[in-house]
Computed example of a mutant assay.
Amino acid sequence: MLARPSTLLWSSSRRAFSTTTWRALRHRPGRGGDTKFGRYERLVPRSLVPQRNLPLAYEVPRTIPYPPYATTTTADMTSLNQNDTSSPAAPVDPLNDPSQEVLYTSPTDLHRLRRAGRLAARTLRFIAPFVKPGVTTAHLDQLIYQYIIGNQAYPSPLGYHGFPRACCTSVNNVMAHGIPDDRPLQDGDIINIDITVFTEGFHGDTSKTFLVGQVDSAGQHLVQVTQDALHQAIAVCKPGAPLYCIGETIERYARQHGLRVAELLAGHGIGRDFHTYPAILHHVNDSPGIMKPGMVFTIEPALCQGETEGILWPDRWTVATSDGGRSAQSEHTILITSSGCDILTLS
């Protein structure tokens, strides 16, 4: 979920990245070092200087339809962001507003939803061979951008509340919303690549955590259990099922395998809007919602080796684990049908 930081489902222990945290993490094992959670590099921000407005990386051709939040050019959006020194007000959260619920039942809408989902899935499959040691996340992002616009679609994250890139790349201890940069991937990393595309008026959203080179057994376990937890949750989705059964299923499965669910991140309704009702919680909860035919939403559990508390980096997007443990995430967009559910983000 590429949610604006102010709308994230933070735990009560939310805190920003501080000088104390920086000093604590910078002296822990670095590249390839052994930690209590395995052998990998723990990422920390390169600067403690708050970055309020980041320049957008790309200019999307105007021949490609933009989503409503990106109606100006990316150059104009960058200029507006750089001139905005005000503190953004927290918007009303559409994820928890049942009046925002939309059920997609018309053949045209369903056709376009499926096309958006398939393009997101194809984009993720396209980038997979490039995920290897020595490749920078910025290069992966550029390839993803080129692939999406080459298919006459818009990369949904670009310009969303000022997000500067075409996708999110979250490495090792980064839980979500990592901004692609010039850091080369290292042998033993894990990386979640979160893809959302906007085409024919609809968004398709998917993500996967990849193994980079030779990953230790603990990292492989984390990634596999996260992927399996997603499919366990999809299996309980059907009309009439309570939304809370998704979180119950994921948390039970994660705990059975010695992992914990990041409660500050959630799935979301999706379709014509990037994020809308319902919020899909991945932990045990008492959400009152019921699944209905035509409901479309993402399930995207993030599991952690250790603490699930999130630290917001100075870029105001990147969320990392407080203890440096690794986190993995896996995501599909699903449609509730009259008899069960369909995964829309299969290539």
Rank of each mutant, 00 (worst) to 15 (best):
S99G: 10
L113T: 07
A120K: 12
L124I: 09
H111R: 14
T85F: 05
P107T: 00
N81D: 15
L103P: 02
T74W: 10
T108Y: 09
R115I: 00
D76Q: 15
P133T: 10
D76M: 11
S86V: 01
K132M: 09
H111K: 12
H111Y: 07
K132E: 12
L124S: 11
P133H: 08
Y104S: 05
R115E: 07
A120G: 09
T108D: 13
P107W: 01
A120I: 08
L103Q: 03
K132L: 10
K132I: 08
E101T: 04
N81G: 13
R114K: 11
S106F: 01
P133R: 14
L113V: 05
T105E: 12
P91V: 11
S87Y: 10
A90F: 04
L103A: 00
H111Q: 14
P98G: 04
D97P: 01
L103C: 03
D76V: 07
A120F: 02
T137D: 06
G134P: 11
Y104T: 06
D93K: 08
T78I: 11
T105K: 14
T136A: 07
L103N: 03
D76S: 13
F130W: 08
R125S: 13
R125C: 06
T136Y: 02
D97E: 08
M77E: 15
R122P: 04
F126Q: 10
N83Q: 15
V131F: 04
Y104M: 04
L124C: 01
T74Y: 12
V92L: 13
M77K: 15
P94F: 03
P88E: 07
R125Q: 13
D109V: 05
A121N: 11
V92K: 13
T108I: 12
P91H: 14
I127L: 06
T137C: 04
R125G: 04
N96M: 06
P91R: 15
T123C: 02
N81V: 02
A75Y: 15
A89R: 15
R125I: 02
L119Y: 04
P129A: 01
E101S: 06
S86H: 06
F130S: 12
P107K: 11
V135N: 03
T105Q: 13
P129K: 00
D97W: 00
G117M: 07
D84M: 06
A90W: 05
P107V: 04
T108H: 09
H111T: 13
L124A: 09
T108E: 13
N96P: 00
F126V: 09
S79R: 14
V131K: 07
T108W: 11
R112T: 00
N83P: 10
A120L: 04
T137R: 05
D76L: 05
L119V: 09
N83S: 14
Q82Y: 14
P133L: 01
D93P: 05
P88Y: 01
P94V: 02
D97Q: 08
L113E: 04
R115T: 04
